[in-house]
Protein backbone atom coordinates (compact mmCIF):
# COMPACT_ATOMS: atom_id res chain seq x y z
CA UNK A 1 0.00 0.00 0.00
CA UNK A 2 2.99 2.27 0.19
CA UNK A 3 3.33 2.12 -3.56
CA UNK A 4 -0.22 3.19 -4.41
CA UNK A 5 -0.53 6.83 -5.23
CA UNK A 6 -3.70 8.66 -6.12
CA UNK A 7 -3.80 9.01 -9.85
CA UNK A 8 -5.63 12.30 -9.82
CA UNK A 9 -5.21 15.27 -7.48
CA UNK A 10 -7.99 15.69 -4.96
CA UNK A 11 -11.00 17.69 -6.15
CA UNK A 12 -11.20 21.17 -4.66
CA UNK A 13 -14.11 20.24 -2.37
CA UNK A 14 -11.96 17.67 -0.64
CA UNK A 15 -9.10 20.10 -0.19
CA UNK A 16 -11.42 22.72 1.32
CA UNK A 17 -12.86 20.06 3.63
CA UNK A 18 -9.41 18.97 4.76
CA UNK A 19 -8.42 22.60 5.34
CA UNK A 20 -11.50 23.28 7.51
CA UNK A 21 -10.79 20.17 9.57
CA UNK A 22 -7.13 21.10 9.99
CA UNK A 23 -8.14 24.52 11.31
CA UNK A 24 -10.60 23.00 13.77
CA UNK A 25 -8.05 20.44 14.93
CA UNK A 26 -5.44 23.15 15.41
CA UNK A 27 -7.93 25.15 17.48
CA UNK A 28 -8.85 22.14 19.61
CA UNK A 29 -5.22 21.21 20.25
CA UNK A 30 -3.59 24.63 20.58
CA UNK A 31 -6.52 26.64 21.96
CA UNK A 32 -5.59 26.37 25.68
CA UNK A 33 -1.93 27.05 24.84
CA UNK A 34 -2.80 30.36 23.26
CA UNK A 35 -5.33 31.43 25.90
CA UNK A 36 -4.97 29.43 29.13
CA UNK A 37 -8.17 28.78 31.08
CA UNK A 38 -10.63 26.18 32.33
CA UNK A 39 -13.93 25.10 30.77
CA UNK A 40 -15.47 24.49 34.21
CA UNK A 41 -14.51 27.58 36.22
CA UNK A 42 -17.73 29.46 36.98
CA UNK A 43 -18.14 33.10 37.74
CA UNK A 44 -21.80 34.08 37.92
CA UNK A 45 -20.80 37.74 37.82
CA UNK A 46 -19.85 37.23 34.20
CA UNK A 47 -22.98 35.34 33.16
CA UNK A 48 -23.49 35.86 29.40
CA UNK A 49 -20.81 38.56 29.33
CA UNK A 50 -19.14 39.41 26.05
CA UNK A 51 -15.61 38.56 24.86
CA UNK A 52 -12.53 39.64 26.76
CA UNK A 53 -8.86 38.61 26.48
CA UNK A 54 -9.19 35.75 28.98
CA UNK A 55 -12.35 34.47 27.23
CA UNK A 56 -12.23 35.40 23.52
CA UNK A 57 -15.76 34.06 22.85
CA UNK A 58 -17.39 35.49 25.96
CA UNK A 59 -19.19 33.65 28.75
CA UNK A 60 -22.15 31.29 29.06
CA UNK A 61 -25.11 31.56 31.46
CA UNK A 62 -23.01 30.20 34.35
CA UNK A 63 -20.12 32.52 33.54
CA UNK A 64 -17.87 29.82 32.07
CA UNK A 65 -15.52 30.73 29.24
CA UNK A 66 -17.12 29.67 25.95
CA UNK A 67 -13.72 29.57 24.28
CA UNK A 68 -12.50 26.90 26.65
CA UNK A 69 -15.76 24.98 26.65
CA UNK A 70 -15.67 24.91 22.87
CA UNK A 71 -12.04 23.71 22.85
CA UNK A 72 -12.99 20.80 25.06
CA UNK A 73 -16.18 20.05 23.17
CA UNK A 74 -14.17 19.93 19.93
CA UNK A 75 -11.86 17.39 21.52
CA UNK A 76 -14.51 15.20 23.11
CA UNK A 77 -16.93 14.13 20.40
CA UNK A 78 -14.41 14.04 17.51
CA UNK A 79 -12.17 11.78 19.61
CA UNK A 80 -15.03 9.45 20.48
CA UNK A 81 -16.14 9.52 16.85
CA UNK A 82 -12.66 8.75 15.53
CA UNK A 83 -12.22 5.91 17.99
CA UNK A 84 -15.58 4.45 16.98
CA UNK A 85 -14.83 4.85 13.26
CA UNK A 86 -11.42 3.21 13.67
CA UNK A 87 -12.98 0.26 15.50
CA UNK A 88 -15.86 0.00 13.07
CA UNK A 89 -13.59 0.38 10.04
CA UNK A 90 -11.22 -2.35 11.20
CA UNK A 91 -14.10 -4.68 12.06
CA UNK A 92 -15.86 -3.98 8.77
CA UNK A 93 -12.70 -4.49 6.73
CA UNK A 94 -11.86 -7.80 8.41
CA UNK A 95 -15.39 -9.17 8.40
CA UNK A 96 -16.15 -7.94 4.87
CA UNK A 97 -13.02 -9.54 3.46
CA UNK A 98 -13.73 -12.71 5.40
CA UNK A 99 -17.30 -12.87 4.10
CA UNK A 100 -16.22 -12.39 0.49
CA UNK A 101 -13.36 -14.86 0.80
CA UNK A 102 -15.10 -17.63 2.70
CA UNK A 103 -18.65 -17.31 1.42
CA UNK A 104 -21.04 -19.99 2.67
CA UNK A 105 -22.71 -19.68 6.06
CA UNK A 106 -20.08 -17.27 7.43
CA UNK A 107 -21.10 -14.79 4.79
CA UNK A 108 -24.80 -15.47 5.20
CA UNK A 109 -24.78 -14.94 8.96
CA UNK A 110 -22.79 -11.72 8.67
CA UNK A 111 -25.06 -10.38 5.94
CA UNK A 112 -28.23 -11.14 7.86
CA UNK A 113 -26.78 -9.49 10.95
CA UNK A 114 -25.68 -6.42 9.01
CA UNK A 115 -29.07 -6.16 7.28
CA UNK A 116 -30.86 -6.33 10.61
CA UNK A 117 -28.69 -3.60 12.11
CA UNK A 118 -29.35 -1.52 9.03
CA UNK A 119 -33.06 -1.68 9.82
CA UNK A 120 -32.63 -0.21 13.28
CA UNK A 121 -32.16 3.52 13.71
CA UNK A 122 -28.56 4.08 14.75
CA UNK A 123 -29.42 6.58 17.49
CA UNK A 124 -31.73 4.04 19.06
CA UNK A 125 -28.99 1.42 19.21
CA UNK A 126 -26.64 3.99 20.70
CA UNK A 127 -29.26 4.88 23.32
CA UNK A 128 -29.70 1.25 24.32
CA UNK A 129 -25.95 0.63 24.53
CA UNK A 130 -25.58 3.84 26.56
CA UNK A 131 -28.06 2.42 29.05
CA UNK A 132 -26.07 -0.80 29.31
CA UNK A 133 -22.49 0.41 29.36
CA UNK A 134 -20.97 2.15 32.36
CA UNK A 135 -19.63 5.58 31.45
CA UNK A 136 -21.10 7.77 28.75
CA UNK A 137 -17.97 8.12 26.60
CA UNK A 138 -17.40 4.37 26.62
CA UNK A 139 -21.06 3.80 25.85
CA UNK A 140 -20.94 6.18 22.89
CA UNK A 141 -17.82 4.48 21.57
CA UNK A 142 -19.34 1.02 21.85
CA UNK A 143 -22.76 2.02 20.50
CA UNK A 144 -21.40 4.01 17.58
CA UNK A 145 -18.95 1.25 16.66
CA UNK A 146 -21.82 -1.22 16.67
CA UNK A 147 -23.81 1.01 14.33
CA UNK A 148 -21.00 2.11 12.02
CA UNK A 149 -19.28 -1.19 11.21
CA UNK A 150 -22.18 -2.18 8.94
CA UNK A 151 -21.32 0.42 6.32
CA UNK A 152 -17.64 -0.59 6.22
CA UNK A 153 -18.62 -4.24 6.09
CA UNK A 154 -20.98 -3.75 3.17
CA UNK A 155 -18.46 -1.69 1.22
CA UNK A 156 -15.62 -4.09 1.78
CA UNK A 157 -17.70 -7.15 1.00
CA UNK A 158 -19.11 -5.72 -2.23
CA UNK A 159 -15.70 -4.52 -3.43
CA UNK A 160 -13.95 -7.70 -2.37
CA UNK A 161 -16.51 -9.92 -4.09
CA UNK A 162 -16.13 -8.05 -7.36
CA UNK A 163 -12.36 -7.87 -7.12
CA UNK A 164 -11.81 -11.46 -6.03
CA UNK A 165 -13.99 -12.76 -8.85
CA UNK A 166 -12.16 -10.69 -11.47
CA UNK A 167 -9.48 -11.82 -13.91
CA UNK A 168 -6.71 -9.84 -12.18
CA UNK A 169 -7.00 -11.87 -8.97
CA UNK A 170 -7.39 -15.10 -10.94
CA UNK A 171 -4.16 -14.23 -12.74
CA UNK A 172 -2.34 -13.51 -9.48
CA UNK A 173 -3.45 -16.83 -8.04
CA UNK A 174 -2.44 -18.73 -11.18
CA UNK A 175 0.95 -17.07 -11.01
CA UNK A 176 1.36 -18.42 -7.49
CA UNK A 177 0.80 -15.32 -5.35
CA UNK A 178 -0.67 -15.83 -1.87
CA UNK A 179 -3.69 -14.10 -0.32
CA UNK A 180 -1.62 -11.47 1.55
CA UNK A 181 -0.21 -10.28 -1.78
CA UNK A 182 -3.67 -10.28 -3.35
CA UNK A 183 -5.03 -8.25 -0.45
CA UNK A 184 -2.20 -5.74 -0.60
CA UNK A 185 -2.04 -5.16 -4.35
CA UNK A 186 -5.56 -5.88 -5.57
CA UNK A 187 -8.07 -5.43 -2.80
CA UNK A 188 -6.70 -2.67 -0.61
CA UNK A 189 -6.13 -0.16 -3.45
CA UNK A 190 -9.78 -0.63 -4.47
CA UNK A 191 -11.21 -0.48 -0.95
CA UNK A 192 -9.04 2.29 0.52
CA UNK A 193 -10.61 5.29 -1.28
CA UNK A 194 -14.09 4.01 -0.43
CA UNK A 195 -13.03 3.54 3.16
CA UNK A 196 -11.84 7.14 3.37
CA UNK A 197 -15.21 8.39 2.15
CA UNK A 198 -17.09 6.07 4.50
CA UNK A 199 -14.83 7.06 7.40
CA UNK A 200 -15.49 10.76 6.83
CA UNK A 201 -19.23 10.13 6.67
CA UNK A 202 -19.04 7.83 9.66
CA UNK A 203 -17.22 10.43 11.73
CA UNK A 204 -19.83 13.03 10.75
CA UNK A 205 -22.65 10.63 11.65
CA UNK A 206 -21.06 9.90 15.01
CA UNK A 207 -20.52 13.57 15.86
CA UNK A 208 -24.08 14.39 14.80
CA UNK A 209 -25.37 11.54 16.95
CA UNK A 210 -23.49 12.63 20.05
CA UNK A 211 -24.65 16.22 19.56
CA UNK A 212 -28.26 15.22 18.85
CA UNK A 213 -28.50 13.09 21.98
CA UNK A 214 -26.79 15.80 24.00
CA UNK A 215 -29.33 18.27 22.66
CA UNK A 216 -32.29 16.17 23.82
CA UNK A 217 -30.55 15.59 27.18
CA UNK A 218 -29.99 11.86 26.92
CA UNK A 219 -26.32 11.96 25.90
CA UNK A 220 -23.38 13.54 27.68
CA UNK A 221 -24.24 14.96 31.10
CA UNK A 222 -23.68 18.47 32.38
CA UNK A 223 -21.23 20.00 33.14
CA UNK A 224 -19.29 18.18 30.38
CA UNK A 225 -18.67 20.61 27.53
CA UNK A 226 -20.35 18.94 24.53
CA UNK A 227 -21.66 20.63 21.38
CA UNK A 228 -25.31 19.54 21.61
CA UNK A 229 -25.43 20.05 25.34
CA UNK A 230 -23.95 23.55 25.01
CA UNK A 231 -26.66 24.45 22.50
CA UNK A 232 -29.55 23.30 24.66
CA UNK A 233 -28.06 25.05 27.69
CA UNK A 234 -27.70 28.33 25.82
CA UNK A 235 -30.99 28.14 23.91
CA UNK A 236 -33.04 29.92 26.63
CA UNK A 237 -30.66 32.89 26.46
CA UNK A 238 -30.95 33.39 22.71
CA UNK A 239 -32.37 36.87 22.97
CA UNK A 240 -29.86 38.16 25.48
CA UNK A 241 -26.78 36.47 24.00
CA UNK A 242 -27.28 35.24 20.45
CA UNK A 243 -23.55 34.95 19.87
CA UNK A 244 -23.20 32.59 22.82
CA UNK A 245 -25.63 30.14 21.18
CA UNK A 246 -24.16 30.65 17.72
CA UNK A 247 -20.68 29.63 18.94
CA UNK A 248 -21.42 25.90 19.28
CA UNK A 249 -23.85 26.00 16.34
CA UNK A 250 -21.23 27.38 13.96
CA UNK A 251 -18.53 25.07 15.30
CA UNK A 252 -20.75 22.03 14.73
CA UNK A 253 -21.67 23.19 11.26
CA UNK A 254 -18.02 23.81 10.31
CA UNK A 255 -16.96 20.43 11.65
CA UNK A 256 -19.67 18.54 9.79
CA UNK A 257 -19.23 20.56 6.61
CA UNK A 258 -15.51 19.80 6.66
CA UNK A 259 -16.20 16.09 7.01
CA UNK A 260 -18.90 16.09 4.32
CA UNK A 261 -16.58 17.86 1.89
CA UNK A 262 -13.69 15.55 2.76
CA UNK A 263 -15.93 12.55 2.05
CA UNK A 264 -16.17 13.75 -1.54
CA UNK A 265 -18.70 11.38 -3.03
CA UNK A 266 -21.82 10.35 -1.26
CA UNK A 267 -23.34 7.26 0.14
CA UNK A 268 -25.24 4.99 -2.18
Amino acid sequence: MTTTTLSRPWPSGRIIGAAILTLIAAFAILGPVIVPGSPFAQSLMKSLAGPEPAAPFGYDHLGRSLYHRLVHALRLSPLIALAAVATAGAAGLVLGTLAALRGGWVERVLVVLADALLALPGLLMVLIVLAIMPGTALGFWAGLSLVLWVEFFRLTRATARATLAGPAVQAARLLGFGWPYVFRTHLWPEVAPLMLTAAAFGTATAIMGIAALGFVSVGMRAPTPELGLMMVELLPYWREAPMALLTPVLATFALLLGLTLLAGGHRT
Binding site: T3, T4, S7, G166, P167, A168, Q170, A171, A172, L174, L175, G176, T185, H186, P189, E190
Partner: peptide, 20 residues
Protein backbone atom coordinates in the same frame (compact mmCIF):
# COMPACT_ATOMS: atom_id res chain seq x y z
CA UNK B 1 4.24 -27.24 -11.43
CA UNK B 2 0.99 -25.52 -10.30
CA UNK B 3 2.17 -22.29 -11.89
CA UNK B 4 3.01 -23.96 -15.21
CA UNK B 5 -0.64 -23.45 -16.20
CA UNK B 6 -1.34 -19.88 -17.28
CA UNK B 7 -4.14 -17.92 -18.88
CA UNK B 8 -4.77 -14.92 -21.15
CA UNK B 9 -8.01 -12.98 -20.82
CA UNK B 10 -10.30 -11.31 -23.34
CA UNK B 11 -9.97 -7.94 -21.64
CA UNK B 12 -6.33 -7.53 -20.62
CA UNK B 13 -7.05 -4.33 -18.66
CA UNK B 14 -9.13 -6.33 -16.20
CA UNK B 15 -6.36 -8.89 -15.81
CA UNK B 16 -3.90 -6.48 -14.19
CA UNK B 17 -4.17 -4.71 -10.83
CA UNK B 18 -5.60 -1.32 -11.74
CA UNK B 19 -3.54 0.94 -9.52
CA UNK B 20 -0.03 -0.49 -9.94
Amino acid sequence: APTALQKLWQDPVAAFPRTR
